[in-house]
Design a protein around this nucleic acid. Structure first.
Lengths: 198, 198
DNA sequence: CATATAGTTCAAGACCGCGTGAACTGCACC
DNA sequence: GGTGCAGTTCACGCGGTCTTGAACTATATG
């Protein structure tokens, strides 16, 4: 987790194709970055985590924290924390340009995989907990006695419902994984001329 | 939306089977109610909406706003608003006991259907919006010109990815519906000896 | 009509998560 | 050692959401 060397295109070319890092995003970039932010927020992460990843992905070349700070209008501290989260999840990579002292960050293409993974864990743990609660309730209800059987049946039904939802959820994640996998192939080869290996 | 008459079991029986409405939930009830609250919150609704529905469902017989207020330790105003939401969504029903002046509220069994429905709408609208944003970004990028083609391709890939996610999502909702439908049958007949007919 | 109780509405406040910015650490270069 | 910059940490404040509680309306009862 110490970062890698960045051996991308020559530094001179960066100013020829696009506003280099004059501080303000191109409108189309802003829209796309915002879109990623919305998606990521929708899935329960921080909007800015998505914006940072989106920017890095769109640019294709590694950016410094300072550049990110300017482009997305975030604070120094904020960027630091966001980058740390993203790096820990393996969706960005810390790279060092030879004979330059600052770290740069590049987008991995694993964002989708990460999202499905985290969501999977979250939902699974959640549904499991619910089922545990419900059976605990049922146990207690039986223990105290005097609870009319039709109420016990209600508890049981809620539990089986939870089970079914759980199964549907797992199925979703699996198919979604499969469905997305195909796209990911094409997705990946456009990011950096290199592939993730975690 | 004016409510229906409640012609359930005789009023005398209510005090024989369980703590009638002494103000505090039985422990097993509390757990179950809380579980429903958690689920509902998980899906983006208010926790207390779930708790109210859960209580009504578990009790099986219609409760007054005052009873709900005491059992769940909520404020008068809060209960009023929660009930209004739930009623508007068709997951509870307002009933009137003959020759009694207060409204009572009974759980419908459509909670699951409502959740899937709302979630479906929400996600669908969301994903659609994302796709629109992305193609807008692409349009703008092409319009300004000078944007390197590999960046345009990135935008395209993000859009197709969104499409695939959308498809997976729809599939999930459909199968989940189907999967849950079976349970719903059993689920339903235990709530009230009556079916919704809105 | 007066009174009491059920029900609604809404401004004020509690609460919570996120980002900020300042203080701090670490490192390179002079 | 000192200066400057990259990067980290964290107490605080802002903005949002949810709940409360009090004022208000509606409705039944004598």
């Amino acid at each position: 987790m110490k970062g890698y060397l960045w051996t991308g295109g020559d530094p001179g070319s960066q100013s020829t194709v696009a506003p280099p890092d004059n501080g303000r995003l191109a409108p189309w970039e802003a829209i796309a970055v915002e879109a990623v932010g919305n998606v990521i927020e929708f899935w329960g992460f921080k909007r800015n985590q998505g914006r940072v990843w989106g920017l890095l992905y769109l640019r294709g070349e590694p950016l410094t924290a300072g550049e990110i700070e300017r482009e997305l209008d975030l604070s120094k501290g904020g960027v630091s924390m966001l980058l740390r989260d993203l790096e820990r999840w393996g969706v960005i990579q810390r790279v060092r340009v030879p004979q330059d002292t600052v770290w740069r960050y590049a987008a991995e293409t694993d964002l989708v995989r990460m999202v499905t993974h985290v969501v999977e864990e979250r939902e699974a743990a959640f549904v499991t907990r619910i089922r545990a609660d419900l059976s605990e309730a049922r146990r207690l209800a039986e223990a105290v006695g005097g609870v009319p059987p039709e109420r016990l049946r209600k508890l049981e039904r809620m539990a089986t419902l939870a089970e079914h939802v759980e199964r549907a959820l797992r199925l979703f994640i699996k198919t979604s994984r499969l469905d997305v996998a195909g796209v990911l192939g094409a997705f990946r080869d456009g990011a950096l001329g290199r592939k993730g290996e975690r």
